[in-house]
């Protein structure tokens, strides 16, 4: 299968803004969209799906971020969204979605349920993505800066981490041009939703080190004679000192100018 006729689908759902509570684009879903847009020659080649009953206006931010058409699958009360979506995704090679819900009714279970429904492998928390030779390779996010390479044969489901991409630019003209298409309701046996209270209690954070902040700073910089990672710049004028900082930031790819 060549990359040209790869069929890619993206699943998007509106999020709830943490401050204002208004509908907005979910960071993880936008990141999934950003990775998907890199795979296809133009936005028209993407199949973009949303299953749910949010207003069209709530999907607007995704249109402004570059989706040309969002297909909305109306869901009946209690119907399992994963099954509704799976019906539309039968002949799709690669399904991308956000790894976590942006509020509302999302449970973040969708990628798992959907992969089960499609009998396809799930590659969770993707940061980068490559497709070739009938398989998909993913760089997976792990905490504390760790990364892991995953690969699976297509078709596959990839859930994308919100840090996979900088926020996509928002353009009002694309919002006006984009379309939202409502598909006919799918008749499915209503699934049963089990609601149960969350049982896990929050664990108190344990400090990694008992040393005071000042002590830790002294440990991080090279005091006289001690061997530590940093450099203390005492000589030179402010410009030279700033240059040392800038070089450090550049070496660590923290600034790019």
């Amino acid at each position: 299968m060549s990359i040209q006729n790869l069929k890619v689908a993206v699943l998007l759902a509106p999020a709830t803004h943490p401050v204002s509570g208004r509908p907005c684009a979910a960071a993880a879903d936008s990141a999934a969209l950003a990775l998907a847009l890199k795979l296809v020659p133009s936005p028209q080649h993407l199949l973009v799906l949303y299953a749910g009953d949010a207003d069209d206006a709530a999907l607007g931010p995704y249109l402004a971020q570059g989706v040309s058409c969002i297909n909305v699958l109306p869901t009946l009360a209690g119907a399992e969204i994963s099954r509704v979506l799976a019906r539309q995704l039968q002949d799709v090679d690669l399904v991308l979605c956000g790894r976590r819900a942006g509020g509302g009714q999302g449970s973040a279970m969708l990628p798992y349920l959907l992969a089960e429904e499609l009998e396809a492998p799930l590659l969770p928390d993707a940061l980068q993505l490559q497709v070739g030779n009938g398989q998909v390779e993913v760089e997976q996010y792990l905490p504390k800066g760790q990364r892991r390479q995953l690969a699976a044969a297509l078709p596959a489901v990839v859930s994308v981490h919100e840090r996979a991409s900088a926020p996509l630019p928002y353009a009002h003209a694309r919002l006006l041009q984009g379309q939202i298409r409502h598909l006919s309701p799918v008749s499915l046996q209503p699934g049963v939703v089990h609601l149960e209270p969350a049982s896990r209690r929050a664990r108190p954070l344990v400090a990694a080190s008992r040393a005071s902040g000042h002590e830790r700073m002294l440990g991080a910089i090279a005091t006289d004679g001690a061997k530590a990672g940093g450099v203390v710049v005492k000589q030179g004028d402010p410009v030279e000192k700033a240059q040392v900082l800038l070089t450090y930031l550049r070496d660590h790819h923290l600034v790019d100018f």
């Binding site: 803004h17 401050v19 204002s20 208004r22 907005c24 931010p61 402004a64 926020p167 996509l168 630019p169 928002y170 353009a171 009002h172 003209a173 694309r174």
Partner: peptide, 20 residues
């Protein structure tokens, strides 16, 4: 309006205005 590529914190400020 057509590309949304406002540099640095500009795009974020605009997103904040839209959302909050």
């Amino acid at each position: 309006l057509t590309r949304g590529t406002v540099p640095n914190k500009g795009a974020e400020a605009l997103a904040n205005l839209r959302d909050t």
